[in-house]
Amino acid sequence: MEYCKTLILSILGGIAMTYLNAPLPWTLGPIVFVALGSLIRKRPFHWSLRIRNTALILLGYAMGRPFTLETGRAILAQFPLMITATCITVAAGVLTAWLMFRHTKINFTSCLLGCVPGGLSQMVILADEIRDADLTAVTIMQTLRMLSVVFVIPFLTIHVLAGSSHAAASAGTAVHAAGSLAEILTYAAVAVLGAVLAKKIHLPTAPMLGPILSTAAFVVITGTAAPVVPVHYINAAQVLVGAYIGSSVDLTRLHQYHGMGKVLLGGVLLVLLVSMGMGCIISEVTGTDLATAFLATAPGGLTEMGITALVVGADSSTMVAYQLTRLLFIMLVFPYIARAIVALYRRKTDNG
């Protein structure tokens, strides 16, 4: 019964945002309505992780299906740019953390983990492992950053950048194209198998990344064209994902840390400007359209940026490659960088 209430509220949110011409209405609508609904009734709505993961499998398939061998070669050629963009984005996050520390009473460790543009869950887990980190502060900062990015980046991409390329125009040209039942069942099995294998080997965002990789690999190996996902299926998947994000946001905690909001929003703006600059450079150097380049370097999550790429018809393969590079860097390399920065700061404060 609780899931039904969440679903109804999510659908109403999607409809309302559609009438308001908001970016990503079927994702942002459920987030806003479910989060505000939890705040008003003073207890959270709930949503199933399994349902969200099922929706991510569909979205992952939709992002993986345009991949070709030529796309793979182009991505490999851009790998140095991917590493450069990742390092610059992380550096902007570290600068934001320093500004946050200087203007609030939150300790430097918590600011560092709260401001770097990684995934919410990954940063919270890392905060739990590092001494002196304030888990609540990190959670609130990452939540505010996520909400800012989820609202701002789709708006910029859809209403400002998409018009600079033919991406948006081509997004819906084949939305009604469908394969045979055998093709649909085959690719469904490939996507589900990819999600299962990705979870087994502990890949980040496995329910989405697994289908992206397995679908892309199957398309390249077999040389077949994967069936297009009808647009209303994409919208339904967005509702299911947005419901989960909205149920995970606890707005009642935002008042606990005064002075955080303005600094964090300024930091988000800084990272967005850096990402926009990197996107312009990548677009000029590689010939990639600006919408794709911006989504590739934007400090959002793979899920949110992937949905935006599908909506505007951006190159999902290139976007995923850049976002995955940053995600893996933050998960595998940044913990050591964070610990080193914190240790250096402690030595300076102890000696000073």
Rank of each mutant, 00 (worst) to 15 (best):
A97Q: 06
L193H: 09
L290P: 01
S247C: 00
R253N: 11
L156T: 13
R131K: 14
P25K: 13
T139C: 12
P204E: 15
M331A: 11
M276A: 14
A91I: 02
P211L: 14
E70C: 08
S38W: 01
H176I: 08
Y244M: 12
A92R: 07
L209M: 14
G119F: 01
V219D: 05
L181Q: 01
P44S: 14
Y322A: 11
L9P: 00
V228L: 01
H103W: 11
V311A: 13
V94P: 03
S110M: 11
Y336K: 10
K262C: 09
S121Y: 05
M100G: 06
T252V: 05
L251G: 13
C4V: 00
H46G: 07
I234P: 00
G13N: 12
T292P: 01
R326G: 09
L20M: 13
V160F: 13
R52I: 11
S317L: 09
Q323D: 05
L81E: 05
F67A: 15
M146T: 00
Y322F: 15
L9M: 13
S165R: 07
N21V: 12
I282Y: 03
I130N: 06
F155S: 11
H232Q: 10
R253W: 05
V312D: 06
T349F: 02
L193I: 14
L135T: 13
H202I: 09
F33G: 08
A198K: 09
F101Q: 09
R347M: 09
G60P: 04
G246W: 03
I212T: 03
T215Q: 10
C280G: 06
I282R: 06
Q78N: 12
L295S: 05
A174D: 08
A16V: 13
T143R: 10
G352Q: 11
H176E: 14
A217T: 11
T286R: 05
I221E: 05
D315C: 08
A340R: 14
T157A: 15
L193P: 07
M123Y: 04
I75R: 09
A16W: 01
G172D: 04
V271L: 07
A97E: 03
H255Y: 05
T292E: 05
A168T: 04
H159E: 13
L20A: 15
D128I: 07
L112P: 04
I221L: 14
V249D: 04
G93A: 07
Y61K: 04
S48N: 10
G223A: 09
V90P: 01
A169T: 11
H258V: 13
N21G: 07
C111N: 14
